[in-house]
Amino acid sequence: MKNIQANIRHLRLLKKLSQERFADELGWSRSMVGSYEEGRSEPPIERLIDLSNYFNIPIDILVKNDLRRAKDTSFIQIGTKRVLFPVTVNEDNEDLIEIIPAKASAGYLEGYDDPEYIEQLQKIKLPFLPTGTHRAFPIKGDSMLPVKDGSFIVAKFVEAIGDVKSGRTYIVLTKDDGLVYKRVYLPEGDEENVLLSSDNKAYQPYLVSKENILELWEFTCCINTQEYDEKELKLSSIMTMFQELKVELEAVRKF
């Protein structure tokens, strides 16, 4: 359990605690903390439970992951647990993003909070991404045209619903619907729900309870896996042009 000795010291220092103060918080002796951090002994299951409860981090993450490789100390809420969510890096300390394969996207609802599920996902490097934790999600259907079926949306993890920017597009994980890619609006005067809207107006917008939302990922970029044909390119260009001219068209309408 080489990771655990490094993780104990790393997490203790993040909390700015001395070994003595940390030992007092856990009801341990200072020599016990020193022994675990220096690798002279390994904590038994009872001590691992103490650590898990104190840091609110599952035991398997404490044991299997080197948390020093995390680039930040952000946490995500999973049920009543706050779980450390490290940015994955490779041997050269470069950011990697996990790819949710299309065939496995249905299982993301069950596996999103399982470190073993996340660990086995394929990873790629996209050096142009801004800082933060990113994943690539498969897109199904035509509800968000011109984004094509089979494309991947690369999105940045959003820590809280309060950080949502109304009108932007997000990957949303809900208890009822699993993964969806929608434009998210915050209805005025409604503190309990968000409005999910498709760019393809053939699909009706709908309300989702904030309590039903498990994860939010803000759009960063789109990766198309298929070529556009000539007709689609024209349609995409026209749609983009009208979206950009929306303000001007509304201004003209007033005259």
Score class of each variant (00 low, 15 high):
residue 199 D to G: 04
residue 165 K to P: 05
residue 116 E to F: 10
residue 209 S to K: 13
residue 167 G to H: 06
residue 89 V to N: 02
residue 158 V to C: 11
residue 179 L to S: 06
residue 186 L to F: 07
residue 97 I to H: 01
residue 207 L to Y: 14
residue 139 I to D: 06
residue 74 S to F: 15
residue 176 D to K: 14
residue 103 K to C: 13
residue 78 I to W: 05
residue 156 K to E: 08
residue 207 L to H: 12
residue 109 L to I: 15
residue 168 R to S: 12
residue 186 L to K: 13
residue 156 K to R: 15
residue 131 T to P: 11
residue 182 K to L: 05
residue 120 Q to I: 13
residue 95 D to V: 10
residue 168 R to Y: 14
residue 86 P to T: 00
residue 151 S to P: 00
residue 131 T to V: 11
residue 205 P to N: 11
residue 115 P to G: 02
residue 193 N to L: 10
residue 204 Q to P: 12
residue 153 I to W: 06
residue 64 K to E: 15
residue 73 T to A: 13
residue 82 R to M: 13
residue 119 E to Y: 09
residue 179 L to Q: 03
residue 154 V to C: 01
residue 160 A to H: 15
residue 172 V to G: 08
residue 175 K to P: 09
residue 146 P to S: 01
residue 167 G to A: 02
residue 193 N to W: 06
residue 185 Y to Q: 12
residue 190 D to S: 07
residue 76 I to L: 10
residue 152 F to K: 05
residue 76 I to F: 11
residue 194 V to P: 02
residue 142 D to M: 06
residue 89 V to T: 01
residue 99 I to N: 00
residue 167 G to F: 07
residue 122 Q to F: 08
residue 198 S to T: 06
residue 154 V to S: 02
residue 199 D to C: 02
residue 119 E to F: 09
residue 209 S to M: 13
residue 159 E to W: 14
residue 138 P to V: 00
residue 93 N to Y: 10
residue 147 V to P: 04
residue 178 G to F: 03
residue 172 V to L: 06
residue 120 Q to S: 13
residue 134 H to P: 03
residue 97 I to D: 04
residue 76 I to G: 10
residue 158 V to M: 11
residue 104 A to L: 14
residue 71 K to C: 08
residue 144 M to D: 00
residue 123 K to D: 02
residue 178 G to E: 08
residue 69 R to I: 08
residue 114 D to V: 03
residue 71 K to A: 07
residue 123 K to A: 07
residue 110 E to W: 08
residue 149 D to G: 00
residue 198 S to D: 05
residue 127 P to Y: 11
residue 136 A to H: 03
residue 114 D to K: 06
residue 84 L to K: 06
residue 156 K to C: 09
residue 170 Y to V: 04
residue 87 V to I: 10
residue 121 L to K: 03
residue 166 S to E: 02
residue 195 L to A: 03
residue 181 Y to E: 07
residue 163 D to N: 09
residue 93 N to P: 05
residue 63 V to D: 05
residue 74 S to Q: 15
residue 172 V to W: 03
residue 137 F to C: 04
residue 102 A to H: 10
residue 206 Y to K: 05
residue 192 E to R: 11
residue 175 K to E: 14
residue 96 L to F: 01
residue 131 T to R: 13
residue 161 I to T: 12
residue 69 R to V: 11
residue 152 F to N: 03
residue 147 V to C: 01
residue 68 R to L: 06
residue 202 A to S: 15
residue 69 R to K: 15
residue 99 I to M: 02
residue 120 Q to Y: 10
residue 179 L to M: 10
residue 86 P to F: 01
residue 90 N to V: 00
residue 179 L to D: 02
residue 99 I to A: 03
residue 172 V to D: 03
residue 94 E to A: 08
residue 120 Q to T: 12
residue 183 R to D: 11
residue 129 L to H: 04
residue 84 L to W: 09
residue 100 I to E: 00
residue 185 Y to W: 09
residue 93 N to D: 14
residue 155 A to N: 07
residue 117 Y to I: 03
